[in-house]
Each structure stands twice: as C-alpha cells, then as structure tokens.
Design a protein around this nucleic acid. Structure first.
Length: 269
DNA sequence: ATGTCGCGTGAAACGCGA
C-alpha cells in the first residue's frame, strides 16, 4: 500500500513544525506540497531527509513554489508545465517518477508518476490573471492528455484553485463570480477529468461540504465556511488501485495552521 | 467586526497576493 497526500502549506518555513508533526504521524510515502514560498536553497530539506524522504523542489522567492517528497527513489521529469509563454514562469508545477518497491522479491518494482500542482488563483474574474489561469489549465489538460498514453499509475495532486461544483462551496451564490467557482474554471476542470481521469474525493465521498480550505478571515473555520479546491486527480491505472481516500481536517484546528488541509489517498501498490 | 495571514522592505508600517 502506498500513501500519497497533497497539502498547500502556505509557507513551509512558517508552518514547518506542524507539517513535520503531521508527516511523522501520518507517514505518507509521497507528499506533494504547494506554496512553499521559498527558494530551493531555503527549503528545510534536512528536516525531511531526517524523516527518510527524498526532496525535490521548484522554489520561488516570496510566492508559489511546489515540492515532491518521497520515501522511495525519485527522478524529476518536469520542473514546469510545458508550453510556457516565457522562461521565468511562476513555480507551479513539478512532476516526478517514483520507484515503488515490490512487496515480494519476485514482484517487479512499480513506477508511480506524481505531479505537484499549484494552479493560478485567477482573481479577479475577467482580468489578465483570470485569462492566465484558463490558459494554464489548457496547458495542464494538454500535459494530462499526453500522459494518459503512458498508461501509468499517475496522480496529479495539488491546489487546483477550482471548486468543482456548488456542493463544494459553503455559499455558492456569494462565490458565483469568484475565479475559483466560475463556469470557465469548472468547465476546464471537467475537461481534464473527461480525458479519463478521476477526482478521488468526488468519486469516493461525493456528498457536499467536504472542504479542503477555509479562509483565515471572518471566522471561516469556526463557521465551516470552506471550499473544496485541493484535489487528487487519478489516471485510470491509479483508480484501479484506489483503496481509500480522505481529507484530514484536523490540522486546520490546531495552532497557527495553514489555511488548507491535507488530502490523501491509499493506492494498492 | 471593515474581522487574517505570510512575505519583503527596511527598521514601523505598508503593499501585495491569497
């Protein structure tokens, strides 16, 4: 069994202690991080290596930044989404091949591909930022389409900044014009899934109100004013092996939390 | 409650992004 989780940590330095505490108890085999908000050299690499993880980052000063942590050997396949308009793009994508050991001496090792995705927020709707979000989603769809042909166990996990349905937001009317809920954003997310991918939480826990993010403002957490915007998107070969998945809301209630919580799945590998 | 964070700048309080 292989445990995979995604978590927007909202600065790995500011939330290092709580991230390490969660990793120690939950022991994910693969952890996809977003918004590390530091350069590669600034990532607290040794703290995770001491816990047995290999660490690969695509960092950036102040904003964004993604990482893949893996207990198994890993090679980085992409440090950016193909098709960038210019060279210095925000750090929002990293994709790795992970070698999961077989359970017996006879069984072959399994290759797992995993990407950590921090999709642009896109607010305000109708702005240049919104156009950039939609263009970025089109590039992600292109990448997902190409990867489908590999027929691999693939997890595209991350902060998608897309709330897929009205059941995934506490106040659909109030959020109607937000870039996270706009029909254009939702249509592209569906387009990604319709290639043949599965949103793990939507498939296994389709009831409304399974949020992954609560704003720091206005007592959103205490009022459960949340949104589901962090997703584990699985290839057909990954879904075949999906044993369980869930959202771990506990870290949001602790001291000095990230505004997002981990989303996890267990694959039979 | 117009209600919060984290970061960088630069030395305190502000602008930005979310």
């Amino acid at each position: 069994m292989t445990r995979i989780a995604t978590w927007n940590v909202n600065s790995i330095k500011a939330h290092l202690a709580s991230t390490l505490a969660w990793v120690k108890t939950e022991k994910p085999d693969v952890l996809l991080l977003q918004e590390i908000k530091c350069l590669d050299d600034g990532f607290p690499r040794m703290e995770f290596e001491d816990l047995g993880y290999n660490v690969e980052t695509v960092g950036q000063k102040t904003y964004n930044g993604v990482a893949v942590l893996s207990r198994y050997p890993m090679t980085v396949e992409r440090r950016a989404l193909p098709g960038a308009a210019n060279e210095d793009e925000p750090a929002r994508y990293i994709e790795a091949l992970i070698e999961v050991p077989g359970e017996t001496k006879k069984s072959r090792r399994h290759v797992l591909r995993a990407a950590s995705i921090y999709l642009p927020n896109g607010n305000p709707s109708g702005s240049e930022k919104f156009a950039y979000k939609l263009a970025w989603m089109t590039r992600l769809i292109d990448r997902a389409k190409a990867l489908l042909k590999e027929e691999e166990i693939l997890v595209l996990g991350g902060d998608y900044n897309v709330c897929p349905t009205d059941g995934d937001v506490y106040d659909p009317e109030g959020w109607r014009d937000d870039a996270l809920c706009r029909p254009e954003s939702r249509a592209r997310y569906r387009e990604l899934l319709h290639l043949g991918y599965t949103d793990a939480i939507a498939a296994r826990h389709p009831e409304p109100g399974n949020y992954t993010f609560w704003d720091y403002q206005a007592g959103a957490w205490s009022k459960d004013h949340g949104l589901r915007i962090d997703h584990l998107v699985l290839s057909p070969q990954a879904v075949d092996r999906l044993a369980d998945c869930g959202i771990d809301k506990r870290p949001r209630g602790k001291e000095k939390p990230s505004d997002h919580v981990p989303v996890w799945c267990i694959l039979e590998i």
